[in-house]
Amino acid sequence: MRGLINYFSGMFNGIISLLKGMGVTGKYFFTSPVTIVTQQYPENRKTLEMFDAFKGEVTMPHDENNEHKCTACSICQINCPNGSIEIVSRDVVNDEGKKRKELDKHLYNIGMCSFCGLCIKTCPSNALAWGQEFEHSMFTRDKFVKTLNNEGSKLMQKKGVE
């Protein structure tokens, strides 16, 4: 007799639990246009905004005079765990006859970057920053290597020096 009661109560409870589950999916079905959470990505491209902290790519901000802050000290290159940064610098002699390095090319290979942020964190002159760009796919691998400094850009002179 107990077996029979268990048989029917088990069946009854089972059906109740199944109906509960169907209630959840059914609820979302009938409220569907409101509850949809997916983003329509290529359509919302114009309105899509990333968070300020978003790590899209490493960039080198330039000011309106096409000047950057990079002193070609190579600390970012040393700190990069993947070797995705390469600094090409040239030696220049200034008016006082002192030799110093000047940035020629800041090569950044985004294909090897793991977005750890060490280059930006350790940069002594705050020359690097995170960019918001995230559409990085390319057809060929060599396009991943980007030159971060603009064509013909110069080192920003420190204020108060002149």
Partner: peptide, 24 residues
């Protein structure tokens, strides 16, 4: 995560001695 650390899955947020940056 993204708002504070910049990463969604892989954050690299902790560093020996503290955090990479402050929370949002």
């Amino acid at each position: 995560f993204e708002e504070s650390t910049g990463g969604r899955l892989i954050q690299s947020y902790y560093t020996p001695g503290g955090l990479m940056k402050d929370i949002h």
